[in-house]
Simulated assay, not measured.
Amino acid sequence: MTAIQLGTAPVRTASRGGDRSRLRLTRRGRVVLAVLVSLPLIAALAAFAILGGSAAIATGDSSSATYSYITVEPGESLWGIAQSLDPSADPRDVIAQIVDLNQLHSSDVQSGQRLALPSQYAK
């Protein structure tokens, strides 16, 4: 069996006229602290610049852009549509323009889908 002896021992405190232990930063510590404090500010400024730091100005001018539209027939693909629009052009370039204009996620199209055509291919 183990015996534990409890007793009162005097507690020593270092009192030097109110001198408390202070945190002292070296030059390197101050640099690290400054970097850590400034990182959120730099990240916020970068996010603001990337996500649209410029203000959009709404005007009353109406857009005069007109597009011609086609409806995808059963069995048609963007490749066939691109070749029929401009046989002399590379179909990949025409497909890229159609995908960008219609904000498509891929080059897959469905029967009955209505697509806007770039103005240079308007009939």
Rank of each mutant, 00 (worst) to 15 (best):
S119Y: 04
S84H: 03
V99G: 02
P74C: 07
V32D: 02
G7Y: 08
D93H: 02
A89F: 04
V109S: 07
V99Y: 06
A96H: 02
Q97A: 15
G18I: 09
G52E: 02
S54Y: 03
D86L: 09
A55T: 14
S107Q: 07
G60P: 05
W79C: 04
M1K: 08
D19K: 11
A96I: 11
E73P: 01
S63F: 05
G53R: 00
V99Q: 10
G53C: 06
A89M: 07
L39G: 00
I42M: 14
S15N: 14
I81E: 02
L104F: 04
A116I: 06
N102S: 05
S88M: 08
G80K: 07
S62I: 13
G17T: 08
A14E: 09
P74T: 13
V35W: 09
S54N: 03
D108Y: 11
L117W: 03
V109N: 03
A82N: 00
G60D: 14
R24M: 07
G52T: 13
A55Y: 10
T13Q: 06
I50C: 04
H105D: 12
D86E: 09
A14T: 10
T66P: 00
G52M: 11
R22L: 14
P10N: 03
L6Y: 11
L6V: 14
R30H: 03
G112Q: 05
S107H: 02
G112R: 03
A82I: 12
V32H: 03
W79E: 01
G80V: 12
S119I: 11
D90T: 07
L41D: 02
A3L: 14
V94W: 10
V72Q: 04
D100C: 05
Q83M: 11
S64T: 10
Q5R: 00
T8A: 13
I42V: 15
T2C: 04
R24Q: 08
R30A: 14
R12V: 12
S88I: 11
Q110I: 07
E76S: 15
Y67F: 15
D93Q: 08
I57D: 10
Q97M: 11
Q83F: 10
P74Q: 13
I4M: 12
L45Q: 01
A122C: 12
S77E: 10
A65M: 05
F48K: 02
S68F: 11
D19E: 10
Y67L: 12
L23I: 15
H105R: 09
Q5W: 06
L33W: 12
A82Q: 05
S88P: 02
S77G: 15
Q120T: 13
T2A: 13
I81H: 00
D90K: 02
A43R: 01
D19P: 00
S54I: 14
G80R: 06
Q110Y: 04
I81C: 12
E73R: 11
A58Y: 08
R28E: 01
S64C: 05
R12W: 05
L36K: 03
R24I: 15
L78R: 01
G52V: 15
A55F: 12
M1I: 13
A65Q: 08
T66G: 00
D93K: 09
W79F: 12
G18W: 06
